[in-house]
Design a binder for these strands. Structure first.
Length: 739
DNA sequence: CTTAGTCTAGTTTTT
DNA sequence: CTAGACTAAG
């Protein structure tokens, strides 16, 4: 059996625990994989082992992940081990797996297979519409809050009836009522929200054992990544798929469970052994990623969680340097010091930009860092944040496509109706809506009827014109490749013309984005043409347009972009899961920021914040820098901060550059960190800067002082550097040599 | 009906 | 501070 060189290669270099996780192929298996313990390695090697050593057909294996990035990475790594055969393993996110199943099977639930997937904005629009139908004031019943409530119900696997049954007060009753209407509106629009993708699949399997049996037979081996982040619906889905053969391998780390707020249920991993009798358990506790100091620091933080299975990670790497900690006056200075430190490491250690990542708790915190990076021309990429497919113009274009594919898509119709503006206003729309509801027809249908009777001549003509446009485009483009469809739609609808007529910089950038969308669509079309020829292409009877729309609905950011080339990465701590960098800055370590104020209410969410902190810290391989600012601008106003309680949880001997002032802490006053700072020395001992002085800066080299502002340690100098031109530096931190 | 301008309120993390 | 809601004028 081991004669096969491929087989030997698959086990080579694995430690005994990893090997056990790979070789234990039959029956349920829980792999508790601590940070940096080679989790992905185990998953990919396990897949290779199943195929290479056990002779399992690649298409008999299902590997589910949470993010597209994780799926892509796994696919790539399996391909490296196996070659092209790997392409037949189904590696995908929960959501795209469900879409795949539903596209083939959802008619068993009496729903259309050409459903559209509603995004955040669509869904919010549906909630607002549902509120209108209930005559509830959106000012009293916050649509976003309701949307969140519905989401929570769905995460828990409760439908509107179940929600209504549980309602104990008027508010809950009303919310459940809105939920019911919301769901009805989705169904009328032949639309599914994100959670429906999972829920409908589970319901399908609940109700149709024969359908379930088919998928169980197809996927004889099921692997689940990041199991700690699964919610109850995902849990049921996995159970369904694995219940016949029980060849289920789940991999996760309870310490990295950071999506509780989104319905992730940590019980799924904690109770695995109870749920699956005779489950094997493998613990991966050797960390190959981080230095001892980083691992110990992160471990010390997460050890403060009370609700936790104890676990001791062992660093296989040496001690390394200590964790760096610094305090900044405000978020600007924090950013300055992060960037200065980054540039310094680049210069003196020969690091590339790609070595660095900056993590923050909330997206809004990226701004000052970005500004500082821009100032020094440091290339960077913000992961997450404002997403390409969320831009208004991109959504407009996609709404057009959606409407062509599915004329019942009410949100797409509303979007498109006045993009560009065509004189069909609120009052007309309201009357059309009323008519649609009364006569039980789609919006598009109702528009036709309204134009025929009831509308003013002018409005009727405009509506007819619009309907003709939609029908013409639909007829012509339904089967077209997406790039062609987008181009024609933008042209014929007058959208592009309208933008170009504006001639503002914003409009220009919109046109630019649309061009990018067009390029993306062309890429997709090209890739898809190839794929559809293959035997296992996902195509089936679906049109290229439909496939394209699925893709954009499920892909959040342009994955290709972030990995590309040599850039500093900026992202939230949540987005950092599954990523690793040699040098990591974790900024904004203040109470109320991280841990976030919204989560300080109950212990459970504080513990989740702590795990999030653990995740952030353990992303670092060699160097970890934690920073906090005494003062921070939030939404325009100034707020004052104290260091995050998490900082205090790191043993001081692991930290460099700062030490907890015990007296101050003990006295119960606000926490303070005092630190000795070499940079202060130069500025502190009476050195006065003056115009015309020659200076040497550690990063910019030599230059001449051309301006002096302020006084004392906060003095700022404008310096014309010989190499890089004029820059403003803070005397206190610039570490200048004079003379 | 549209648009530009004012106001306000709401701020976590996202497949 | 900013996106979205609202208002008043064209």
């Amino acid at each position: 059996m081991r004669a096969n060189p491929l087989v030997d290669g698959v086990l080579e270099g694995l430690n005994p625990e990893q090997r056990a996780a790979v070789e234990t192929t039959e029956g349920p298996l829980l792999v508790l994989a601590g940070a940096g313990s080679g989790k992905t390695r185990v998953l990919t090697h396990r897949i290779a082992w199943l195929i290479g050593a056990c002779g399992i057909a690649p298409e008999g294996i299902l590997a589910v992940t949470f993010t597209n990035k994780a799926a892509g990475e796994m696919k790539e790594r399996v391909a490296k081990l196996l070659g092209p055969e790997a392409g037949d393993v189904w590696v995908a996110t929960f959501h795209s797996t469900c879409v795949r199943i539903l596209r083939r099977e959802i008619h068993h639930l009496g729903r259309s297979r050409s459903f559209v997937i509603y995004d955040e904005a669509d869904v919010l629009g549906v909630v607002k519409e549902a509120l209108r139908r209930h005559s509830l004031d959106p000012k009293v019943h916050d649509p976003r809050r309701l949307r969140w409530r519905i989401d929570q119900w769905k995460n828990a696997g409760l439908d509107a009836d179940a929600a209504a049954e549980r309602a104990r007060d008027l508010d809950a009753e009303q919310a459940a009522g809105v939920y019911a209407t919301y769901q009805r509106l989705l169904e009328e629009a032949e639309a599914l929200d994100f959670n429906d993708l999972l829920l409908q699949t589970v319901e399908l399997f609940d109700r149709q054992p024969d359908v379930l049996a088919r998928w169980q037979a197809r996927w004889q081996y099921v692997l689940v990544d990041e199991y700690q982040d699964t919610n109850r619906v995902q849990y049921r889905l996995v159970n369904h798929l694995a219940s016949a053969h029980r060849n289920l391998c789940v991999v996760g780390d309870p310490d990295q469970s950071v999506y509780g707020w989104r319905g992730a249920d940590i019980r799924n991993i904690l109770d695995f052994e109870r749920d699956f009798e005779n489950a094997g358990v493998v613990r991966l506790e050797r960390n190959y990623r981080s230095t001892q100091s980083i691992l110990a620091g992160a471990g010390a933080v997460v050890a403060h969680n009370r609700d936790r299975k104890d676990k001791q990670m062992v660093a296989e790497r040496g001690g390394g340097e200590r964790i760096r900690l610094f305090e900044a006056r405000d978020e600007r200075e924090e950013a300055q010091r992060v960037v200065a430190s980054l540039l310094e490491a680049r210069r003196s250690e020969g690091r590339s930009h790609g070595h660095f990542a900056v993590f923050y708790r909330t997206n809004a915190q990226s701004r000052p860092i970005e500004e500082e990076l821009l100032k020094y021309d440091v290339p960077y990429a913000v992961v997450g944040g404002v997403r390409f497919y969320d831009r208004a113009e991109v959504k407009d274009a996609l709404a057009w496509l959606r409407l062509l594919v599915n004329p019942k898509d009410a949100m797409a119709l509303r979007r498109v109706l006045n993009a560009p503006p065509r004189g069909i206003g609120k009052t007309s729309l309201a009357r059309v809506e009323e008519l649609a509801e009364r006569e039980g027809v789609s919006l598009l249908e109702a528009m036709g009827r309204f134009a025929a009777a009831g509308a003013q001549a002018r409005t009727a003509a405009r509506i007819r014109e619009f309907l003709e446009l939609v029908e013409g485009l639909a007829r012509e483009l339904r089967e077209s490749p997406p790039d062609e469809a987008i181009a024609k739609v933008l042209e014929r609808s007058g959208y592009l013309r309208h933008l170009e007529r504006e001639a503002t910089p914003e409009a220009e950038s919109r046109v630019e984005n649309l061009r990018e969308l067009l390029l993306g669509a062309a890429d997709f079309a090209a890739a898809n043409r190839v794929q559809q020829e293959g035997p296992s292409g996902p195509g089936g009877e679906r049109t290229p347009l439909e496939l394209f729309l699925d893709q954009v609905a499920l892909v959040t950011d342009l994955d290709a972009w972030e990995n590309r080339s040599d850039r500093v990465s900026l992202m939230t701590a949540h987005s950092a899961t599954g990523r690793v960098f040699p040098v990591v800055f974790l900024v904004g370590m203040e109470e109320g920021v991280f841990p976030h104020a919204a989560s300080s209410r109950d212990d459970r969410s504080v513990e989740e914040e702590r795990r999030l902190c653990y995740v952030g810290m353990t992303r670092a391989m060699e160097r970890l820098t934690l920073t906090w600012a005494r003062e921070r601008r939030r939404y325009g106003s100034r707020t004052f901060g104290v260091p995050s309680s998490f900082l205090r949880e790191i043993p001081p001997e692991l930290v460099e550059g700062a030490s907890l002032d015990e007296d101050v802490a003990a006295s119960g006053r606000s926490l303070d960190y005092s630190y000795s700072q070499d940079a202060d020395a130069g500025a502190g001992d009476g050195m006065a800067a003056a115009r015309g002085m020659r200076v040497r800066h550690p990063i910019f080299g030599t230059g001449t002082v051309v301006g002096v502002r302020g006084s004392g340690v906060d003095q700022k100098l404008d310096i014309r550097f010989d190499r890089v031109g004029v820059k403003t530096v803070v005397l206190r931190y610039a570490n200048l040599e004079f003379g």
